[in-house]
């Protein structure tokens, strides 16, 4: 039970959720709910892992992972944007499809060791007491990318012109259309961006934070947790990142409870009976539910909520949003 270690691990595993959740924020802000995050992540994790293994180049693996997630997401884009299919069902089938493809193409990858994305210290900053070892020491490059990416994503969505177009397409597509914004094209684009980031999140697992290919256990529901995180974060990248890190740290902290024989001066029940760890493993999922309850209550109070056109297909020339 060491706070430094817990926070360090929280930042690392939180990065996975960060990429996936911010990707989903882009898609949902454009009005497309994509529940296929889990599938896109798993496909990304597999594609990155196997490419890195085959080419002996982790960077190529990273690019392939991003593209794999992006390309898969286009299937969801086509079906929901052009065919106006139900976004919930389409997202679910994307998860099935992504998972299935990842398992089929990932056959026999378990136990292999491809080159990984490097980890390193940030010179200078790593020397700061406490802050340094937590934030800037021995993290994967992708964790540092996460630090920079989050504020950029926030700035892009809230302060730039293309970001305004993105929000317009998700809140009131008909108005955006009248302004000359191509609703269909933008929605495709941001679904693709979301898919790419989900693929990146997958590679963050398999090539950086907890390297390896463990078939569908590789993601073990983190894609779904990311979708929940988006609601908790009220579609705000900063809150999503914060939530992701916090979630990662809590998860690690709870797992570390198994270590000590004494807890607050009392015998640690987890130390005596390891089967209690089944309850520990439940915590991320229960925490997600609690976070959702809190987020939903806050949303009800402040009358904040999802982008107005989320989940609603846009049909040019027809009445609607």
């Amino acid at each position: 039970m060491n706070l430094e270690i817990i926070l360090h691990a929280g930042l690392a595993t939180g990065t996975i959720l960060l990429f996936a959740a911010i990707g989903e924020i882009f898609a949902e802000r454009a009005g497309i709910l994509n529940l296929g995050v889990e599938g896109m992540m798993l496909l990304g994790a597999m594609a990155g892992f196997s490419t890195s293994l085959a080419t002996n180049n982790a960077w190529l693996g990273l690019v392939t992972a991003v593209l794999a997630g992006g390309v898969l997401s286009l299937a969801h884009g086509l079906v929901t944007i052009h065919f106006q299919a139900d976004q919930v069902v389409s997202g679910l089938s994307l998860t099935f499809l992504g998972t299935g493809l990842a398992l089929v193409f990932g056959e026999g990858l378990t136990g292999q060791t491809p080159p990984l994305i490097p980890s390193f210290d940030i010179p200078g900053l790593a020397a700061i007491p406490f802050i340094g070892p937590v934030f800037f020491e021995n993290h994967s490059l992708l964790v540092y990318v996460g630090y920079l990416f989050t504020p950029l994503a926030w700035y892009y969505i809230n302060r730039t012109r293309p970001g305004m177009h993105l929000r317009a397409v998700g809140e009131k597509p008909s108005a955006a259309d009248t302004m000359g914004i191509n609703v269909y094209r933008l929605r495709y684009f941001y679904v693709f961006v979301g898919g790419c980031l989900a693929g990146l999140a997958g590679a963050t697992i398999s090539l950086a934070v907890s390297p390896g290919w463990y078939s569908d256990q590789t993601t073990s529901g983190q894609g779904w947790i990311a979708v929940g995180l988006v609601i908790f974060a009220q579609w705000d990248p900063l809150k999503a990142a914060l939530g992701g890190y916090l979630f990662g740290a809590l998860r690690r902290g709870i797992l570390d409870l198994q270590g000590p024989a004494l807890l607050l001066g009392m015998t640690n029940p987890l130390y005596i009976n390891s089967n209690f760890s089944f309850f520990l493993k439940m915590t991320p999922y229960i925490l997600t539910i609690l976070a959702l309850v809190l987020g939903s209550r806050a949303a009800m109070k402040k009358r904040l909520g999802a982008p107005a056109a989320l989940g609603v297909p846009y049909i040019r020339g027809e009445r609607g949003l």
């Binding site: 599938g39 089938s93 994307l94 998860t95 099935f96 499809l97 992504g98 998972t99 299935g100 493809l101 990842a102 398992l103 089929v104 990932g106 056959e107 078939s215």
Partner: peptide
């Protein structure tokens, strides 16, 4: 491979 059924379902 084992994921075939899952892929087909998707």
């Amino acid at each position: 491979p084992s994921g075939l059924a899952s892929m087909l379902q998707g």
